[in-house]
């Protein structure tokens, strides 16, 4: 499976947790924290669950909540995808 992009992540977040009340997710949000975007830990668990199903990888809940920004989340996912390839 190809690398997960920020656009892919935004699509999943919108589906799982709704659009951000505070920022335009189509803008440059790579280094804006999920907290600032308005997503709490449950929103991130929901997003991680959908990511796992779509990409066929396993992400520990503990590791997921450590990813504070989209960039960190994508690094985590793409690291798993490289390891699985």
């Amino acid at each position: 499976m190809s690398e997960m992009t920020c656009t892919d992540l935004v699509a999943i977040i919108r589906e799982c947790a709704g659009d951000s009340d505070t920022a335009d997710l189509d803008g440059d949000i790579l280094d804006v924290s999920f907290e600032e975007l308005g997503y709490d830990s449950l929103a991130m668990l929901e997003t991680a669950g959908q990511t796992q199903r779509r990409y066929g990888i396993t992400l520990d809940d503990d590791v997921v909540v450590e990813a504070k920004t989209p960039r960190e989340f994508l690094d985590l996912v793409n690291g798993k995808l490289v390891a699985a390839a």
Partner: peptide
């Protein structure tokens, strides 16, 4: 309601 509230 904002879309943030709908999935939850």
């Amino acid at each position: 309601l904002a879309s943030r509230l709908l999935p939850q």
